[in-house]
Amino acid sequence: MASANFRKTYFGSLGLQVVQAKPSLETALQGDILDIERLNKLCLWVRIPHAYRPLVWKVLLGTISLAKEVWPFVDAQREEQFQDLKQCVAVLSRPSSAIRPDDNLTASTMVYMLLIQLDTRSPHHLSQAFTPTSLPSLSHLHALANMMLEVCDTSESDAYWLFESFVLKYNVSLPGYGPAVDAERERIMTEMGALQNLLKAQNAPLLNHILSFGKGLDAYCYSWFRTYFANVLPPQSLEGIWDIFIGGAPGIFPYLGLSLLLACKRKIEAVRSATELVYLFTNVERVVDMDAVANTAIDLWERPVLEGMNKDLRKALGYNF
Rank of each mutant, 00 (worst) to 15 (best):
Leu199Ser: 04
Gly214Asp: 15
Asn208Arg: 15
Ala219His: 12
Leu207Val: 12
Met192Ser: 02
Arg185Ile: 09
Gly214Arg: 13
Ile210His: 11
Gly214Glu: 15
Ala201Pro: 00
Glu191Arg: 09
Asp182Trp: 08
Lys215Asn: 13
Asn208Met: 12
Pro205Thr: 08
Ala201Trp: 00
Asn197Thr: 06
Pro205Met: 07
Glu186Ile: 08
Lys200Ser: 10
Gly193Lys: 00
Ser212Cys: 05
Ala194Pro: 00
Met189Asp: 00
Ala183Lys: 07
Arg185Trp: 07
Asn203Lys: 12
Arg185Gly: 04
Tyr220Lys: 02
Leu198Phe: 10
Ser212Asp: 04
Lys200Tyr: 04
Ala194Leu: 01
Ser212Asn: 04
Glu184Asn: 06
Lys200Phe: 05
Met192Lys: 00
Glu191Pro: 04
Leu195Asp: 10
Ser212Ala: 06
Glu191Gly: 09
Ala194Val: 02
Pro205Cys: 05
Ala201Asn: 03
His209Met: 09
Gly214Asn: 14
Leu207Glu: 13
Leu217Pro: 05
Asn208Glu: 15
Lys215Leu: 15
Arg185Glu: 11
Val181Met: 04
Tyr220Thr: 02
Pro205Val: 08
Ala204His: 05
Val181Gly: 02
Ile210Ser: 14
Thr190Met: 12
Ala219Thr: 10
Lys215His: 15
Val181Leu: 07
Lys200Thr: 06
Ala201Glu: 02
Ala201Gln: 02
Pro205Ile: 08
Glu186Trp: 07
Thr190Gln: 11
Leu207Asn: 12
Asp218Glu: 06
Asn197Arg: 05
Ile210Phe: 11
Asn197Gly: 08
Met192Cys: 02
Ala194Phe: 00
Ala204Gln: 08
Ile188Ser: 01
Gly214Ala: 15
Ala180Met: 15
Met192Gly: 01
Asp218Met: 01
Ala204Glu: 10
Gly216Ser: 10
Gly216Met: 06
Asp218Tyr: 01
Gln196Gly: 13
Ile188Thr: 02
Ala219Glu: 13
Leu211Gly: 03
Arg187His: 07
Leu198Tyr: 11
Leu198Pro: 11
Leu211Trp: 00
Leu195Glu: 12
Leu206His: 13
Asn208Leu: 14
Ile210Pro: 13
Leu206Ile: 11
Leu198Asn: 11
Gly214Thr: 11
Tyr220Phe: 09
Glu191Val: 08
Ala201Ser: 05
Met192Asn: 01
Glu191His: 13
Leu199Tyr: 06
Ser212Tyr: 03
Cys221Gly: 04
Asn203His: 15
Glu191Ile: 08
Pro205Glu: 06
Lys215Phe: 15
His209Cys: 10
Asp182His: 07
Leu199Arg: 03
Phe213His: 06
Ala201Met: 01
Glu184Gln: 10
Leu198Gly: 08
Leu207Thr: 13
Ala180Tyr: 15
His209Asp: 09
Asn203Arg: 12
Tyr220Arg: 04
Asp182Ile: 09
Leu199Gly: 05
Ala194Asp: 02
Gln202Ile: 00
Ile188Gln: 00
Ile188Ala: 00
Ile210Ala: 14
Lys215Val: 09
Leu195Gln: 11
Leu199Phe: 07
Gly214His: 14
Leu199His: 04
Glu186Val: 08
Glu191Asn: 12
Gly214Ile: 14
Leu198Ser: 08
Asn197Met: 07
Gln196Phe: 06
Gln202Arg: 03
Val181Cys: 03
Thr190Glu: 13
Asn197Lys: 05
Ala219Asp: 11
Gly214Lys: 14
Glu191Asp: 14
Val181Lys: 07
Lys215Asp: 14
Met192Thr: 03
Lys200Cys: 06
Glu184Arg: 06
Asn203Gln: 14
Tyr220Gly: 03
Asn197Cys: 07
Gln196Asp: 13
Met189Tyr: 00
